[in-house]
Design a protein around this nucleic acid. Sequence first.
DNA 1: TATGAATGAGCGTTCATTCAT
DNA 2: CATGAATGAACGCTCATTCAT
Lengths: 207, 207, 207, 207
Amino acid sequence: MVIDGRVARAQRQRESRRAALLQVARRIFSQKGYHSTSIDDLIEAAGVARGTFYLYFESKRAIFEELLDGLFATLASTVHRIDVTPGAPPPIEQVTAIVDRIFATLDENRELARILLREAVGLDEDFDRKLADFYGRIDHMITNALRTGITLGVVRPLDPEIVSRCILGAVKEIVHQAYVAPQGSAAPSTATLGREVIAFTLTGVFA
Amino acid sequence: MVIDGRVARAQRQRESRRAALLQVARRIFSQKGYHSTSIDDLIEAAGVARGTFYLYFESKRAIFEELLDGLFATLASTVHRIDVTPGAPPPIEQVTAIVDRIFATLDENRELARILLREAVGLDEDFDRKLADFYGRIDHMITNALRTGITLGVVRPLDPEIVSRCILGAVKEIVHQAYVAPQGSAAPSTATLGREVIAFTLTGVFA
Amino acid sequence: MVIDGRVARAQRQRESRRAALLQVARRIFSQKGYHSTSIDDLIEAAGVARGTFYLYFESKRAIFEELLDGLFATLASTVHRIDVTPGAPPPIEQVTAIVDRIFATLDENRELARILLREAVGLDEDFDRKLADFYGRIDHMITNALRTGITLGVVRPLDPEIVSRCILGAVKEIVHQAYVAPQGSAAPSTATLGREVIAFTLTGVFA
Amino acid sequence: MVIDGRVARAQRQRESRRAALLQVARRIFSQKGYHSTSIDDLIEAAGVARGTFYLYFESKRAIFEELLDGLFATLASTVHRIDVTPGAPPPIEQVTAIVDRIFATLDENRELARILLREAVGLDEDFDRKLADFYGRIDHMITNALRTGITLGVVRPLDPEIVSRCILGAVKEIVHQAYVAPQGSAAPSTATLGREVIAFTLTGVFA
DNA sequence: TATGAATGAGCGTTCATTCAT
DNA sequence: CATGAATGAACGCTCATTCAT
């Protein structure tokens, strides 16, 4: 029991150290970007020794990857398949809710959003593939939703794969603009952004 | 005359060397990205000595910047203001033509497109600013076009700045998907992409 | 306590490494000069890795500057203002003592003397200024001593600034000859040098 | 004859090119020092092509050495042995004249003086040896003069080698101060410098 | 577990010199 | 003789990672 307690306490300490390092890394990576962030930056901000870092993470790449995975998970849990069973809320409402939640999530995780949209491309092949997978899954869901919509007659005939990418791109750009780029004037509220994006997606720009 | 001839030939040789280096750099940067490309990679691929590189370009950054500037210029010449004077072609036709030309240009410059969409963010502040300026100018043109459209009654009431970004994002994503990401299946033709993006932009997804 | 012990030991090790590097650098710089000494020379002679050097010194320039500063400090502590208050030893005795100490100090620090007299000019503006400041301070002290001597009537009327530089030059040349230049025959003893220089300074060459 | 004329003209052109390069090099070396002067600096200032430089001089080192040799020759012709045959001018007058001429020569060749006193030490072993030889010859002449003076009874008993170095050092320092170091206030005239140095050398500082 | 000194491959850049034209 | 493009060894420095304590 005593030993178990010790082990458990050690385990807990270990986890909290890890968490602390991750948090620090999230902040610093978000501020300076992957390449401009050195191990030095991380350990100094975290107040641990050089070697300690490598006790918890295999490499600089590894801790960054873990941050990315966390963000993927967070976002993935935000986006669900559209429910088209009878009795479910109308698809449009569901989509609206999803988009709202995406914006809200990124708003709550601006640092991670910065990382995702600023840095996660071009670092190396593995990162790129990971990122492509992530967006690919979202894309797939949108594509499916569009296909369903077409079948149900609520969506006009269109190339679901291309349009799906358009929607994804619109959302990414809005998020980038809102949370990543340093903006001079006041940014529109999350709600406004969501409303406009959805309206655009649904009806386009035509009068 | 003789001397003129010599000078002219030397000048030509010099330019062709420069061009060759730029071409090699375009390929390598496009494949490996800015950070992962070393001067060694460039000179080995170009078959020149270390010092020769610096005869033509001030630094690694400089040659990359030149590639970027070239792409900016190429794209900028592709995008014009919409002409709304009476007698001009209908705005929609103009927009269609512009989008078509953008896709065609990027299609012809896939390597540069890769660089632009994969690398140009997060390298350093100057690059970031340059990129932001570039997109900012395009964004501004779209915004103005939307405002004009609203005034003319052909565009529904909307927030021009947000929707402008949506359109930009949609186009960027399509381009990225089409020319940057290694695609398994056959990519849709440029014409198809243009048609779908425009239709989406104009009318959204609603039936 | 245990931790304190560890920290203290580490501190000591750190200092001794630094000292070892400085010592090696002193030797190599003294032998080959600043420009001809490469970081490679230093780390090879010290038996440390490239990075280790930069753990202790910011740059090649920095370690050289530190050596120079050390010599300045050593010499500065050797030279004092002449005490002319009643009861103090006669000025001539004081001057004799100072000159003796300068020679002795440089004799004990031949490597540093080599550096000071061989290298410290023309390296860069900062070094040059530093050196000029150092000699300027000594020059100032001699000038003042001469002025005082003239006032007291023990020094003949003369241009204190020019003669001060003459004295400085004489001493520098003797030191250079004695400790810097590789000499074939046996060098005169420090005491002899001091005696002759002082006699020359005081009475010149005239019979 | 015609051919001879051509050859002679070519010869003359060759020499003037060389001379022009030397003159330029003198100026630039004097301003920037040996290490900070690049071949680029020289050929740009001289308005010749890179390869042309190597047509006239073997290396950067070679042209610098030639400048140095020129200065040595100029100065050597300034300093003569003291004539002690009966009927010759009194030795003191001769010494005075020599010192005056040294100062005047250096005054007329400030650029070379800068080079000689700022740069010629520590460049490499050969330069150092050359410089040592040059000063050695002057030193030898002063030593001999002192020995003669002692024999004649006009110079007090002293160690001729040490005192000779003192005199040399005094002169070098005065020259350095006057022509090399950037001086704020007005420099004393050459005549004043010469007078003070000689007086100091002859009688020291004692009243 | 925690430390931080040590490592060394790798980088971008410079510049004296060569050589084909 | 003149050119200037080409060369490549050498340099100072960085930083992710290792390891003895």
